[in-house]
Nucleic acid binder design. Sequence first.
DNA 1: ATTCACATTGTGTACGTAAACATTTTTATA
DNA 2: TATAAAAATGTTTACGTACACAATGTGAAT
Lengths: 354, 354
Amino acid sequence: MSKIVRMKDIAAMANVSMGTVDRVIHNRGRVSADAQKKVMDVLEQINYKPNLIARTLSSSRNYRVAALLPDAELDPFWRSSIQGIQQAHSEHSQFGITISYHFFDPYSGDSFRQQAHDALESGPDGILLAPTLRQEALDFAGICREQQIPLVCFNTYIHELAPLAFIGQDLHQSGRLAAELMTMIAAPGTILVTHIGEQVQNSAHIGAKETGFREFVREKGSSHFEVNTVQLESPSRSGFKASLAQALETHPHTKGIYVTTSKAYEIARSLEELGKTDIRLIGYDLIDENLTHLRNGTINLLINQNSDRQGFLGISYLTDHLVFQKPIPTLQYLPLSIVTRENLNSYITSQEVN
Amino acid sequence: MSKIVRMKDIAAMANVSMGTVDRVIHNRGRVSADAQKKVMDVLEQINYKPNLIARTLSSSRNYRVAALLPDAELDPFWRSSIQGIQQAHSEHSQFGITISYHFFDPYSGDSFRQQAHDALESGPDGILLAPTLRQEALDFAGICREQQIPLVCFNTYIHELAPLAFIGQDLHQSGRLAAELMTMIAAPGTILVTHIGEQVQNSAHIGAKETGFREFVREKGSSHFEVNTVQLESPSRSGFKASLAQALETHPHTKGIYVTTSKAYEIARSLEELGKTDIRLIGYDLIDENLTHLRNGTINLLINQNSDRQGFLGISYLTDHLVFQKPIPTLQYLPLSIVTRENLNSYITSQEVN
DNA sequence: ATTCACATTGTGTACGTAAACATTTTTATA
DNA sequence: TATAAAAATGTTTACGTACACAATGTGAAT
């Protein structure tokens, strides 16, 4: 029977005007201690839930969100993040959300600083950030905090950033999962953990996966498997395939390769060219380049970081925070999705609507 | 620059009143051909998107939704569906959605009819249905169509129901996936597909999984694996373990068991009691009973039907349809999530909020 | 031409909140 | 005490839509 309580009702119960109730609820000040108490007393008795619909309609202002993430032209991994952001945007545009995009070179501090500057220039009410560069991200987060701009981060977890929300994957656990899967599908022998032309800045990020991987093997598979880390040339250089071949010669009993980034397709391509078919390959992310090899069997498993959903949730959370003033999760770990040839389509199909 | 167009603007452009615009947009009739044309012309030129916020606030009526699904007391599988429904409800209750629950015995037509009758009695504006009983569901859907009550179904796909939306899993593909996983982790030998005390009504439902499973093995694993179907006693009967032991004697080279329902824990328990440790076990759903065995390793893999998300989406779609009059997907297949010991937590953890 | 029935069109109010604005009360100052 | 300034409180309007209601216009029957 509990009818919905409105500000009007509270005003009546407390014997004050709606204006006063409004001032108390939003503590805008300019209220006598007496009135304050009267309203607070009522608020404690009843369970007032503001009507978010009415609130949104009333204060129908426009919110600007700046999305700051690497350029998908430079790394296709980010394509799906952008898709997720765009989908969230199209679902929320009616709430007066506009998004400006600022794409940076994921390995260039200068590029980041430039784009970050532009993002701030646009006078955003909220910022969505993929903090691939640690130090630059920290500096930027400081400015956001100074300027009181809500910051939501995704993909790369950096504890000290202390954003309003982080959305991503538990990387340590992700590494453990990869190891579990590898020990399930690979024959006993050597497992290579590959790092491909990585920059120093990313080392913490990648490190958590490797640590998790090794931890699992130590716990559960040390009798059958030996883990070795190899550093390969950047795929953009001609030496890439050679450096892989070299690694395989050094470790002749290699039965599996774990690629900690979305670049498994580069390894897959080289393995095909080298005619190696007895090596299990586990990598990350449903980018087109990987899917081809997952379908033809060169890549056996992919762990999906759900970066489309990361982008989607990032924008959704900012909308909830800005528009609806709803509480949002501080830390949102997404599922560690395992993708094979047979469940791939269930992860990438979109549905018709009516 | 494209300012948002309101009904007011359309009225001005077409030289009519807002009332007329309203009548045209909602084709409530009582409009002259002349006025109709004037408004339509404007509507074709501009891109009018109604403000759903304002619409919702204005027609702030209450919607009743009836949820009709099996009793979780009789089958724990349904617990998570209910959780999902409740979560969606708590997120949408501010939009004036109230839900009445009607739990039936999943194997009793009488029970279903009784609860379905109650559900209709409650005068719902929308219905969420888990159509476990085929014929009864068809009859019920007919009544819903007659009474023009929107019907959203989940979990069990029945084509002839033709609901507003179906949310669930592609069962054929689910079977294929199970087979792919089984051939990855099991040693060559016999694979058993088990049916546990199933009712006739569910045969179509379960059949799709088995067909998919066999199809995959035929295509990709026929040289190493032989698939056999076994029918076991209902776990409630004392003969369950014996019937399993009997099946394993009949098929002495059994290396894997595929349980097409959420009852893998029953098999796991019996396997433990029988001391069988070399048989891989793949089942469905993250119910507590299964998780225990997944954690201790008796169950190797679970395929998650995401029934919490099914319930959540079911209510969300009904809300979108009723409250926001948004288009919703006709057919929403959810991902075929693969769950292991190491990614289990990423599927069941909930987050703190701020 | 007058009246009535009916079709069409226009106007006003409600939804619940936020925020601008107007009014009253209190306090400080001369 | 008178008066201005400041503080507190109350009132009104806007947000965009839906819907009830009022006001026109049209044509037919008397």
